[in-house]
Design a protein around this nucleic acid. Structure first.
Lengths: 209, 209
DNA sequence: TAAATAATGTGAAAAAATACACAATAAATA
DNA sequence: TATTTATTGTGTATTTTTTCACATTATTTA
């Protein structure tokens, strides 16, 4: 089992690139096509595929449909993945409404909050009291949760999530969560990303000067 | 000039950790404290600092205030960084309202869209027509932009941004942007992040079985 | 003041990730 | 059918990143 995060991220990118290529009418692709579309080298593509036992046809490349299926299989996307969101503030609300991944086997099925003003069963995706979290997660067998609460609450909420059975947390709060060994955490930190960008923009400025 | 992205990201994390430690009353820290708070090893912390010429006091650790200042300096955060957003849909709107980085020297000063229904000068952060983008960016000397438009528009909009003088783009559209050499691009892709999480959760499941 | 202690700073070793290079081979062409 | 061509698949080399290990040195203690 390959446990290299960057490699898995590239697989996702290959899949997205393949969808676009398919939309353009591609039936087969070469490693070089995928490399261009995903912004890597062709040997990187082939090496990645080799790691996962994905094979093509020498001289013939890869069949787009087979490749998409195979990658979706590896990523666990050939079955629907249910996701919940805790914290329905600015970011949480935006994610609740986000339609981008409907097509890809990921579905946000509920939001949770402690503020009654935010509760609603009327919306396409209901917003429920955090007190109902455990029961909901267990009934629907949800394994993945998005954490979008203010940073002071983040650690506490992550413990609630883990104890309810959530195994993967996508954390938007700007702190480094520490979780049990059997809970996987990914962080998205806007400020960190912007700082990174600012650094490299400045660096380029200096390099040119 | 250090051009290692992961290293810069760790610097940001050290800074965030330092702010929290400072709030707890820390005046000096050891590399081990920072390592724990940021989720890395202490030798990693010291090596990173060494790369940037950050020095502490043998046996005495690092002074929190000095360290924060020094890291902010390296990240270019001791002067205000103005940021604009293009695309004021779900995600863009949420980011416009996001208060998380006010304290950190990053300020979102305007949003842009093509949909007149979204224009507004009344909001704290105005939403303006995309046609005004170039002039605004040049007048305010903005170098960093967030791209939050639908994927079909993303490439076109990124070219508008670059031609107006934007040098760093934080891209939320699920495609791999290709830009001029002097424009730095960072990608945040929710679906990719969730797929990653799903993979590792499944992988752990299998490892346990 | 001298000795003991505990931290940094960094060269060197190890590990991980990436790129290279080319034999193997399927498709295209003559 | 034989030859040429273009692409995969992968062992090896290279580069990058991380960890190790310890000499150095400030602080504390005796």
């Amino acid at each position: 089992m390959i446990m290299n995060r960057k490699c898995i991220i590239r697989l996702s990118r290959y899949k997205n690139a393949l969808k676009r290529l398919k939309a353009l009418g591609f039936v087969k692709v070469f490693s070089g096509n995928l490399a261009d579309a995903a912004g890597v080298t062709s040997s990187q593509v082939r090496k990645d595929f080799s790691l996962f036992g994905i094979t093509g046809n020498r001289r013939g490349g890869y069949k787009v449909d087979e490749l998409i299926f195979r990658i979706r299989e590896i990523l666990g996307k050939n079955e629907l993945q249910k996701v919940v969101i805790v914290g329905v503030g600015n970011i949480g609300k935006a994610l609740l409404r986000y339609k981008g991944f409907e097509s890809g086997g990921i579905k946000i099925i509920a939001g949770f909050d402690i503020d009654p003003a935010r509760f609603s069963q009327q919306l396409e995706v209901p917003v429920l009291p955090l007190d109902d979290f455990r029961q909901f997660v267990q009934e629907h067998n949800v394994k993945i949760g998005i954490l979008a609460v203010p940073d002071v609450a983040a650690h506490h909420v992550s413990e609630i999530m883990a104890s309810a059975g959530i195994k993967g947390i996508l954390n938007f709060a700007p702190i480094q969560l520490r979780a049990a060994d059997d809970v996987v955490i990914s962080n998205i930190n806007l400020e960190v990303e912007l700082e990174n960008l600012i650094y490299f923009v400045n660096a380029q400025d200096k390099a040119e000067a």
